[in-house]
Design a protein around this nucleic acid. Structure first.
Lengths: 248, 248
DNA sequence: CCCGGACATTGACCCAAGTCAAGAAACCAT
DNA sequence: ATGGTTTCTTGACTTGGGTCAATGTCCGGG
């Protein structure tokens, strides 16, 4: 079984082949087998936190199902989410340790893990994998920098609209089409998690959601289901160029 | 001449060997020669802006002397600096285009450039280079994420202290020691550029600098020279763990 | 030495978002 | 259904940092 084939989990890599397949798309059969040989699966419950300090975590992983957040935490407890991890996204770094992060499972989570040692050995033998990992990391860097613009310069309203845009784009990408017109999206995050990602408080998030609803830019069905009547109109609120920069 | 040897410029790679040498440290002599064959130098005047959109820029580069900032810009002109480029730092991405950035020379600047095509070919032939580039990119990603915490959660005062800390650490690294005690640093940035990096306005930067000065945490000699009487005391203001996270 | 322009500081005022606190909705497990 | 918990909304109030505007300081060139 290759890394991008189905496992018993409901939504394995087949549903979001871009990243997973990318790790191995250009690999030969024997390289695929090598990847399969060193992988294993781990699941986490919603709400569970994993402290992903470079040294203590001796594996890298990629999300198979569910959504997690990657968080930076200050000693006094202030927390900033620095990345969303959707299915096919990669966590951890090969090589020596980097900064420590908290990974919080926002929903039940299944991850596909590779022990660092054998993964690195495989990387050394298989240039495709290293190259693909570089590409993915560069994309993440672009995304992080775009998010810095949001954190440093956008208003609360623009931040909310941008977050909805990201989720809408992800959703659209899963169905292999471009986001536009009327869309229905499912928020995988609580108001608190949204606030953590946007550099706001949960009260401000709630207020701005209400404001967008009042003005007809979104509709809410329950707390977590958001209907976007007009994707393009919402984009204008986000203050982004029409094409929408984030590739990740 | 290898990439990390002196050129006629005052402070070529020898002064900050970590990154430059790293690109080629594990390369064989012929690979070094190949790198040398495709490199060329370009200089920019202080204040000059280069639009580094993936497609139009057909080279990658690394800073030899001077300091530049990497900026994200919104259509309405709001600007966020997303990275400082010190000597030995790398700009541009091999592979297909990424997001467009503005690179602004904050001082006179000398860059060492490599045309993309031959650089990529070299990368494909030389796994060391690809691996080293991956490491560097992962470090940058860590730095970007640490900065997201600053942008999203720190107060103006903490932001200023953190920026001074970064510059102090860079300075110390150049002399191969750890930052501590009394330090004298030279700001390579105007108040405006500091504000752009910190997600503040220049007035707020100025006010907070004055406040830190009033409280004896820093002294100013002229506008650009900052004396830090007690590095550790300033670190506390920055709200960072003592060891100071940013490796980049 | 003095002038002009760029850069920096300071003050007065304002507003977006944070804080604190009370309810309301949704979501369980019995 | 029912009660208890968690999550979300809304209101009243405060505040950090933005905005606008006036000065001040530095530095290079004539």
């Amino acid at each position: 079984m290759t890394i991008h084939e189905k496992v018993d989990a409901p939504m394995q890599c087949g549903s979001c082949p871009i990243r997973h397949r990318a790790v191995c798309a250009r690999c030969e059969a024997d390289e695929l087998a090598a990847l399969d040989a060193i992988k294993f699966y781990r699941s986490f419950q919603a709400g569970q936190t994993v402290i992903w300090a470079g040294d203590q975590m001796d594996f890298v992983a990629s999300v198979v199902t569910g959504v997690a957040t990657l968080n930076q935490v200050m000693e006094d407890g202030r927390t900033q989410t620095v990345g969303l991890l959707f299915p096919s996204d990669f966590v951890g770094r090969p090589g020596r340790s980097g900064s420590p992060y908290n990974v919080v499972a926002e929903t039940d989570l299944l991850m596909c893990c590779f022990r660092k040692k054998p993964f690195e050995e495989l990387m050394a033998r298989t240039p495709h994998i290293a190259q693909r990992l570089l590409e993915m990391t560069l994309d993440e860097l672009d995304a992080a920098r775009e998010w810095m613009l949001l954190l440093g310069r956008k208003t609360a309203r623009e931040k909310i609209a941008s977050l909805l845009a990201i989720i809408a784009r992800r959703d659209a990408a899963l169905h292999l089409n471009t986001p536009s017109g009327r869309m229905v999206i499912e928020l995988p995050l609580t108001r608190e998690a949204m606030a953590a990602y946007l550099g706001l408080t949960l009260e401000t998030v709630s207020r701005q959601m209400s404001a967008l609803k009042r003005e007809g830019l979104i509709e809410l069905s329950g707390k977590r289901t958001v209907i976007i009547p007009d994707y393009e109109a919402l984009m204008i609120e986000a203050g982004e160029d029409a094409d929408g920069g984030l590739p990740a």
